[in-house]
Simulated assay, not measured.
Amino acid sequence: IDEGRTRIGQARFLANIFWSCSMLTMVAIAIDGLGFAAWLFLSSVGLTLIYGVMRILNIAHGGFYALGAYSAAWAIGLYTQGGGPIALTYLLIPIAALVAGTIAGLLVERGILRFMYGRDEVLMVLVTYAIFLILEDVTKLIWGTESYVSYQPALWLGTVDIFGLPYTVYKFLIIGVAILCGLLLFWGLNHTRVGKLLLVVIQDREISSALGINVTLSFTVTFLIGATLGALGGALTAPEVSVVPGIGSEIIVMAFAVIVIGGMGSIGGAMIGALIVGFARAASVHLYPPAELFAIYLVMAAVLAFKPYGLFALAESRKI
């Protein structure tokens, strides 16, 4: 009897350990997935906005992301060397993203893309890919090939324990910024005059032009917003990673996976796609790390098998 009780006690002990480990794993998957999804949404929402209005698969978006990351890392490093308060670095991040995204976006759209409107979509892909390569070289010419580390904003906020698991508070800051950006975009598109005009252009640019809407100006405004959002994604990421050459190549692949899953041109689709990719990656990392990249593309293939145009693809008008 005593031996039986001992074995039952051991079984309960092992069951409790297994249950605790399972709960910790689920918590880790939830938080890591949400954090990764927030980063993906910030990095890809500008890409899907540009496609929705302009019908351009903008591969150069990865270059805007890299410019934002380098600008923020450089500005934070330069500022902290002067011994200023770390709290002000949180103001430098959006400023760096705004400056980098606005300047680069304006030069690309006004200097190159405006001459390509109306061309074949495949040609636009090749043009934006060439721009992406140019932006990669521009970052190397300006900041060199060494890595930049701007850990001060993330370190200053400290960490918080959730069920015994330590997480940086900065991760939750990024989640909050992603939610705020999503709400602002939804409000701006649906409750402002400029946003409603953009929605009209998204539906039919020819009718929009016939109604007197300045489609060219709409394209410029949309591209600047998209480029700035891409730069903001990079700027917010800079305190958590080492900013190195080629940082834009990784994000453009992930961003395309997000918008393809959610539906190209859909802001809400980008949010759902980011959540799906984020949780798929987090689950694979915690449960079976070798399948990290495979899991993302497996999810994308599974979604496209049932919804070839994505979960929330915009309806395409057909002229007869």
Rank of each mutant, 00 (worst) to 15 (best):
W19P: 00
S20W: 11
S22D: 10
L24D: 11
A28H: 09
I29K: 00
A30L: 14
I31V: 15
D32Q: 13
D32S: 14
G33H: 05
G33P: 13
L34Q: 04
G35E: 10
F36W: 10
A38K: 04
A38Y: 05
A38M: 09
A38T: 05
A38L: 08
F41M: 09
F41V: 06
L42M: 10
S44A: 15
V45G: 03
V45N: 03
V45Y: 03
G46R: 01
G46C: 04
L47R: 04
L49Q: 06
L49G: 04
I50R: 01
I50A: 09
I50N: 08
G52P: 03
R55T: 07
I56V: 15
I56Q: 04
L57T: 10
L57Y: 11
L57G: 03
I59H: 01
I59K: 01
A60H: 07
H61V: 01
G62K: 03
G63Y: 02
G63I: 00
Y65E: 02
Y65P: 00
Y65I: 03
A66L: 06
L67V: 05
L67K: 01
G68I: 04
A69M: 06
Y70A: 00
Y70R: 05
A73L: 09
A75E: 02
I76G: 04
L78R: 14
L78H: 12
T80W: 02
T80S: 14
T80A: 11
Q81V: 11
G82K: 13
G83A: 14
G84V: 13
P85N: 13
I86G: 02
I86K: 09
T89W: 08
T89P: 07
T89H: 07
Y90N: 05
L91P: 14
L92S: 02
L92R: 07
I93A: 07
P94V: 12
P94S: 13
I95H: 10
I95E: 09
L98H: 06
L98N: 05
V99M: 07
V99D: 04
V99I: 15
V99K: 06
A100L: 10
A100Y: 07
A100F: 03
G101N: 10
T102H: 04
I103Y: 00
L106S: 15
V108T: 12
E109C: 04
R110C: 04
I112S: 01
I112R: 00
R114M: 14
R114G: 04
F115Y: 15
M116L: 13
M116H: 05
G118N: 13
R119H: 12
D120Y: 06
V122N: 11
L123F: 14
L123A: 12
M124I: 08
V127S: 01
T128M: 06
Y129S: 12
F132N: 03
F132W: 10
F132Q: 05
L133V: 15
I134Y: 14
I134H: 07
L135T: 03
L135M: 15
E136Q: 14
E136I: 06
D137W: 01
D137E: 15
V138Q: 05
T139F: 05
T139A: 15
T139G: 03
K140C: 01
L141F: 13
I142C: 08
I142G: 06
